[in-house]
């Protein structure tokens, strides 16, 4: 609970500041921590996002506020392969490249997106996995395709099975009429790099305000040293690993020597 204390304090401050100014749909956001550090015992982490909507815009039964939180991990290029049976074996037959697709994509909404706004607006604002842009290279063309495209659907399905893409239709909860909270799980297999948290608030089916925060997933200490050495000094890394293997073999030979 201690790590939540700081952001909570910030909201109290934000509330006090925002109190005087009724106009302007300002959005104040904070993460329980802006940096997820990966050490040798890392198995995943949970980040809590807090947000404060300007009191003038506070949710009332007559005019409910909706919040959509989208978290995108560092972009990577992926290839989706379709298998076909060839001489009795299943072979990768056809492929599509997904260029600069987020390696992690999580969508949290205060209620089902279909209830928040029209489909056209949801598409424009990239709400939900189906509306998120996924640029594909098809031959020499670059385009995003219809959500029903089998390669696109397969890509989303595989990423969801890996636990790196997900949608939580009730993932944003209001703890006060103008204060909301979303819990963002970062799995142990989460890709390393900069993440972006984008928050959009809607009322009456229209976008009211938006805000964004940066989040970083980084290896530190030993993990980082190993990974960067492997990248930057491959010869040194290879030699060190080979020497380590020989040393272990030598020690084992001495330890279990029987003659």
């Amino acid at each position: 609970m201690r790590r939540l204390a700081a952001p909570l304090l910030l909201f109290a401050l934000a509330l006090a500041l925002a109190g005087g100014d009724a106009r302007g749909a300002e959005l104040v956001l904070s993460l329980s921590k802006a940096r997820v550090t990966i050490t040798s015992n890392f198995t995943g982490d949970t980040i809590v996002l807090f947000g404060v909507i300007a009191p003038g815009e506070a949710a009332t039964p007559a005019r409910p506020q909706d919040v959509i939180v989208t978290v995108r991990g560092p972009s990577e290029s992926f290839t989706t392969w379709r298998k076909e049976r060839f001489l009795g074996l299943w072979v990768n037959a056809d492929s599509r490249s997904f260029l600069a697709a987020p390696s992690y994509l999580a969508v949290f909404t205060s209620r089902a997106p279909a209830l928040i706004a029209e489909a056209e607006i949801l598409r424009q604002e990239q709400v939900g996995l189906d509306n998120n842009h996924l640029l594909q290279r098809i031959g020499s063309d670059y385009a995003d395709v219809v959500p029903q495209d089998p390669f696109r659907q397969a890509f989303l399905r595989v990423k969801q099975a890996q636990g790196l893409y997900f949608e939580r239709p009730a993932g944003v909860e209001f703890i006060a009429p103008n204060v909301f909270r979303a819990t963002i799980p970062i799995p142990g297999t989460a890709p390393i790099g900069p993440y972006e948290v984008v928050v959009k608030t809607f009322a009456d089916g229209a976008l009211v305000s938006r805000g964004a925060l940066d989040l970083e997933v980084a290896k530190i200490d030993f993990e980082q040293t190993v990974a960067t050495t492997a990248q930057d000094h491959p010869w040194l890394y290879g030699l060190a690993t080979a020497l380590m293997a020989l040393a272990v073999g030598f020690i084992a030979n001495l330890a279990f020597r029987r003659d």
Binding site: E76, F78, T80, W81, K83, N92, S97, F151, V158, K159
Partner: peptide
């Protein structure tokens, strides 16, 4: 296979 599609990461990127 349960799924006819597989996804791989392009190392080059």
């Amino acid at each position: 296979p349960a799924d006819f599609y597989a996804v791989s990461i392009d190392e080059a990127a």
